[in-house]
Design a protein around this nucleic acid. Structure first.
Length: 270
DNA sequence: CGCTGACCCTGACGGC
DNA sequence: TGCCGTCAGGGTCAGC
């Protein structure tokens, strides 16, 4: 569900609500997430004031005076901010209880999400080898060109590798390759510098467009403010198998590449 | 080292 | 209506 624009939407919605508040207690009802939740995590966060809410790739980083909570939403995770605590329902795995009485609740049916505590988040094993931020200054055509030489893997899988660039997920990999006119299975190392410049431009543009639209709501994504995104209305190829290409009118192709649903126009993308 | 496929888990949906 | 197979936006890891 959540890719970078959805995580960023969540971050922007929640930041004004949690920064400056103090975590009174953490309730972990289900430890079996993507990685088992450290049993020390509640103690490490208890009584800590939240100083910032930031993002690295698809990870949310909640900074406190005593350390940082790394939170990943996985495929089905979501955060809801409750002014008044309600009885937790199914898949409500973790609550951050603030001293103000408000609650930040983590719900995740598939349990692919995760929570970690770290005093040095940038050095944490989950973040340490992560590539540049796609919206940051280090993600350039020059960088992508250097990183891709001699790589035979298809450019879509290459783009979705977090070591190459952080947080480009399936929807936006499909969309940016369409916009750039590049076929998803083309070997990454056999794309010209000029075309990689274009790809970088389109990755950035599609992510920015999606953030501006409040993310993509395919099923049930809502941001920190509880509102859905509407970027799904702007998707050119994702989930549009058989529909006509917005540029050439030929039908959109759907196939599985590397276990992920892939959509493209075989005429416009080469 | 690079790449492929298996795997983690629940829920929704379509076909019969 | 119910059962069953398939698929889903995440990521890591073993093994070749």
């Amino acid at each position: 569900m959540p890719e970078l624009p959805e995580v960023e939407t969540t971050r922007r919605g929640l930041a004004p609500l949690v920064v400056g508040k103090t975590i009174a207690a953490v309730a972990v009802r289900e430890r079996r997430l993507r990685w088992p939740v450290q049993s020390s995590l509640p103690d490490r966060l208890q009584n800590q004031p939240v100083t910032a809410l930031s993002r690295r790739g698809k990870y949310l980083l909640m900074s406190t005076t005593g350390g940082t909570l790394l939170l990943h939403l996985g495929m089905s995770g979501s955060l809801r901010y409750l002014a008044a605590p309600t009885h937790p329902s199914k898949h409500d795995h973790v609550d951050l209880n603030f001293s103000s009485g408000e609650v930040l609740r983590f719900n995740d049916p598939r349990r692919f999400g995760s929570l970690h505590f770290s005093t040095e988040p940038e050095q944490h094993w989950l973040l340490k080898h992560m590539g540049p931020e796609p919206l940051g200054p280090d993600f350039t055509g020059e960088y992508l060109w250097r990183a891709s030489r001699r790589r035979r893997v298809g450019v879509k899988q290459f783009l979705m590798n977090a070591r190459v660039v952080a947080g480009v997920g399936n929807i936006y990999a499909n969309e940016s390759l369409f916009r750039a006119g590049i076929h998803p299975t083309r070997p990454a190392g056999r794309i010209s510098r000029e075309r990689l410049d274009g790809l970088v431009r389109e990755v950035r543009a599609v992510l920015k467009d999606a953030i501006r639209a409040g993310g993509t709501t395919l099923k049930d994504f809502v941001g920190g403010d509880g509102r859905p995104g509407y970027f799904q209305l702007s998707l050119d190829v994702y989930d549009r198998a058989g529909e006509s290409c917005p540029r050439c009118d030929k039908p959109i192709t759907a196939r599985t590449i590397g276990q992920r649903a892939t959509y493209y126009c075989s005429s416009c993308q080469r």
